[in-house]
Design a binder for these strands. Structure first.
Lengths: 355, 355
DNA sequence: CTGAAAGCGCTTACAG
DNA sequence: CTGAAAGCGCTTACAG
């Protein structure tokens, strides 16, 4: 994966301003046929190791790089996977980082298309389709499932972080209920009883987390403490709810399960800023374990959704579909894992003392 | 920009599983020639408004979308701009959001390629080149300038947020010195004298900001207070330096100019967490004004680099080059703007009282 | 391994 | 506006 980052000097290099070299140039210079060069670059059998090496060497010399456009056009199968992401979502960033190496190992290129407040997901998907993606990885899509179903009929599609029971598309997500259950149990064992949940609204996994929160609270006999605060998986909703909670003084919950890490971060910032101690005055649990949660100064207890495993499964998922290995839609459910860090501890008011 | 997000029902739609419709399909069904369809989709003159409409309508009906690969291959000019970004950088996210609409208005598509710890910038650029991008927008690249120069010889390249004096490529960045000067002046006017700077290391703009910090401090007669702490434009470096500063107790600076917003956020979190008041105990200024700085609970005073203007200039820059309007490399310097929010105020120890 | 050929879905220029 | 044709840089199958 690591590339030569340092060597500034490039030996000669391609002639300036010229047309970019084609397969024909490589073939001529290497003294082989075009078909052979094609074969070498597709990593297909039929060339000796010596020849293979020479072809690569010549290609390097003249700066040849296969033209994706021509490749796509010529081959019925496009070896390109499209990824839809929300550009501001740190967990999506983690996912993208994980997807690249996996896809490469499977011989696929990745095309990224970002959704944002001013560019909706449909538009982002359209761009991907225009570029002939063979399959689509949708990160936490909020698209209507009828649209997804329609997409799924055109090409292999896998949704990450969200299930689409109706639409016949694959999905990879974690067992939300399990993650939430572990988080609540962890807090209860620390001595918390008043545990609130900031809801993720229409965000991926939110409905499941909300349900699981209620169920877990009931299971622990804490029905009377059930409290779901509105939110939407953004920092803003975390800080907004912090204001609500802070205004309650001593009646404030002693712990909060946030809808995701972003929400937890907003909550933490607002709470820290008011001079409260975490976890002394308030314990906070996130969801995702995005790279921000690891940061030493955040040190967020959270439910880990492993991006590497998500990526590996999702890529395999669409590749298998493309290879015709599998047919019906499948749901891959990954085990989440509670990661306890510095934002959870016994409540100050409890009999349990921290070590 | 806003699309139909709600309407789930799609009227009939393309036949399931079939090959995707081509220009020929549209031409047949609309009863016109292929050439005419091509012309309509390229928005070229030569078709009546009525025909234009019918073509679009038929295209919509059968779900036709021009094939980018074929388009690129056929036309010498590929209407695609490649964007290199670092996927974890929130300011890059802002930039990407701004780039999409501008590019679209100019008739260009955007291809995103992400660099990350495990995928270096060269690799990300290579992917872009393989997809035949007509021009490249590099967000805060840390590539060696010799490599950039080489790239610049192959296609129009513009670097955002960083100058490359040696390499003959365009750049768009802010007048770092001016931004830093304004920030320091603001702090001095509030009564601060001991103002430290957390350096951005090799990051874009860092060298300029460091120099400007030193100059501004000298200008205000605060030479003895000059203090540059090592860093690298990440949250981690902000929180790491917070630890260093917090250990100094009363000898701690009263204000810090962070290398960028991410660094400022790390610093803020660490400082809040220790129960210190911002700005009472410490004033903090960031750099970038990324979307995170706006968040109500962060409310960071920072030097704004307008992403919309960066995007507009950068896109125009490469488009002009592609159109042959301009030739030599140019440097576009934007005016930064200090945005004072809640993280700056008079130091507690000063005679000046806050209102 | 070579060599010749067809084709992917467009753009482009041209005669009508 | 139409219609026929060449070409973009590859892949793919085939005879040798």
């Amino acid at each position: 994966m690591a590339e030569q980052q340092g060597d500034a000097e490039t030996s000669g290099g391609p002639r300036r301003g010229d047309r970019r070299p084609t397969m024909t140039d490589v073939a001529q210079r290497a003294g082989v046929s075009r078909a052979l060069v094609s074969l070498v670059f597709r990593d297909a059998p039929g060339a000796s190791d010596r020849t293979r090496e020479r072809v690569f060497q010549v290609a390097e010399e003249i700066g040849y790089r296969p033209d994706s456009a021509a490749r796509m056009l010529a081959s019925s199968r496009s070896k390109v996977l499209g990824v839809l992401l929300t550009v501001r979502n740190p967990f999506h960033a983690d996912m993208v980082e994980s997807i690249y190496p996996v896809a490469e190992r499977r011989g696929y290129e990745i095309l990224l298309s970002a959704a944002s407040p001013s560019r909706d997901e449909r538009k982002a998907v359209d761009a991907l389709l225009g570029h002939r993606c063979a399959g689509l990885l949708l990160l936490g899509p909020t698209l209507p499932s009828s649209y997804l179903a329609e997409l799924g009929r055109k090409l292999p599609v896998v949704a990450l972080g969200r299930r689409f029971p109706g639409a016949d598309v694959d999905s990879v997500h974690t067992a939300e209920a399990k993650g939430v259950r572990e988080a609540i149990t962890h807090l209860v064992e620390l001595g918390h009883r008043s545990i609130a949940h900031i809801d993720g609204g229409r965000g991926p996994g939110s409905a499941e987390r909300r349900r699981a929160y209620r169920a877990a609270m009931r299971k622990h006999g804490l029905t009377e403490y059930i409290r779901v605060l509105p939110g939407d998986q953004t920092e803003e909703s975390g800080s907004a709810q912090a204001k609500v909670l802070l205004a309650e003084g001593s009646r404030m919950p002693t712990a909060v399960l946030a809808g995701n890490d972003r929400c937890a971060l907003g909550l933490l910032d607002a709470v820290w800023r008011e001079g409260l101690q975490v976890p002394g005055d308030l314990s906070v649990v996130g969801y995702d374990d995005s790279h921000l949660a690891h940061l030493s100064h955040i040190d967020l207890s959270t439910v880990r959704q492993d991006p590497d495993r998500h990526a590996a499964l999702a890529v395999q998922c669409v590749v298998d579909r493309l290879d015709g290995v599998r047919d019906g839609a499948e749901e891959f459910v990954l085990d989440p894992k509670l990661v306890t860090r510095g934002t959870t501890g016994p409540p100050r008011s409890s009999g349990i003392m921290s070590a």
